[in-house]
């Protein structure tokens, strides 16, 4: 459904004394999502997860320069085709109610999303009703304003908005942040249902535990680089191959709660060898060479020491 190959995003910024600096928040991202599949994108804040979503939706600001390839159903996405597909074939499930119009009733907004996806009035009204029923939102909720809905209800309304059209690819940006565990689990199970209907879902999150429970595969991002693309069960099975993926898993409170000191490279640092070089416990001389993402076992890893 979606295939991202070696995506990089650069911004130029004017610093002190009008010196122009180039920053690279996204260096080398690759991933693919198939029909009926949830791929979780995990990594620290500032690793470029949200920019990836913006790139796929064609919402990057004007001073961004991208290279690499984004294919949707086998066709490369251009800025014109992204604008045409966005909201129709590709939909975003945003993070919070802040993305809803505060002055419009929620029923109206789900209907409008459905209309904007290209449906006639009658079909849009029907799919609005279906979306409300699917997410167990009572008829009475339609007349509420966004500020009147609770956190859990808001998640359902946002998911309803994204699914009122018939998008094939859904991008969920941090759908569990700030929710208590019960509501978070519900919101993830809604994503699972969508995938089981054959839709492709990109789940952007830093909640590794949730990602591993609900996703089919996980893409681990570090400093704007895909370091590992692996079946989700490899986390719990201890079959992770990149040292950063292992560090993330071992740092969970319910695992070891251990940590690797240091920080990811700043966006304006140029990195030639392994992106994780300065923090890796297993580094050797070979790590100074460029590291391609290569297939190992059932996944892909960007580490010269990983073995099948």
């Amino acid at each position: 459904m979606l295939s991202v190959k070696n995506l990089s995003i650069e911004f130029s910024r004017y610093g002190s004394a009008r010196r122009r600096t180039i920053i690279h928040p996204v260096r080398d991202l690759s991933l693919d999502i198939g029909d009926g599949e949830i791929v979780a994108v995990v990594g620290s804040s500032g690793s470029g997860k949200s920019l990836l979503a913006h790139a796929v939706l064609g919402l990057l600001p004007g001073n961004a320069r991208t290279s690499g390839e984004i294919l949707f159903k086998g066709t490369p996405l251009t800025s014109a085709s992204m604008a045409a597909l966005r909201g129709r074939a590709i939909a975003l499930i945003p993070q919070s109610v802040a993305y809803l119009n505060p002055l419009s009733r929620v029923g109206r907004q789900v209907y409008r999303a459905s209309r904007l996806s290209g449906k006639c009035r009658a079909t849009a009204a029907r799919s609005t009703d279906r979306a409300f029923a699917r997410y167990r939102l009572d008829e009475s909720v339609k007349s509420l304003f966004p500020f009147q809905v609770s956190g859990g209800m808001a998640r359902r309304v946002l998911t309803a908005t994204a699914t009122a059209g018939d998008a094939d690819l859904l991008i969920a940006d941090e759908p569990t942040t700030g929710l208590d565990p019960v509501v978070a689990r519900q919101s993830l199970s809604h994503l699972r249902e969508l995938a089981d209907l054959g839709k492709a879902v990109m789940l952007i999150t830093h909640d590794i535990d949730a990602a591993v429970t609900v996703a089919d595969r996980v893409a681990v991002i570090y400093a704007g680089t895909t370091v590992e693309l692996t079946p989700a069960r490899n986390f719990a099975d201890g079959a992770l191959r990149h040292p950063y993926s292992r560090a993330l898993w071992n740092a969970l409170p319910q695992q070891g709660f251990g940590f690797v000191p240091g920080n990811q490279p700043m966006e304006d640092d140029a990195v030639n060898g392994c992106i994780y070089l300065d923090r890796c416990p297993d580094r050797t001389g070979e790590c100074r060479c460029a590291q391609p993402l290569r297939p190992v076992g059932k996944g892909h890893v960007r580490c010269c020491h990983a073995q099948g």
Binding site: V42, G43, S44, S45, T177, G178, H206, I208, A247, L248, W249, A251, L252, P253, F257, G258, F259, V260, P261
Partner: peptide, 17 residues
């Protein structure tokens, strides 16, 4: 108050340490 809710697990463990 939810001091590390938006951090990745590695940073969370580092901060609490």
């Amino acid at each position: 108050d939810e001091m590390t809710a938006m951090l990745d697990p590695n940073t969370q463990a580092l901060v609490w340490d």
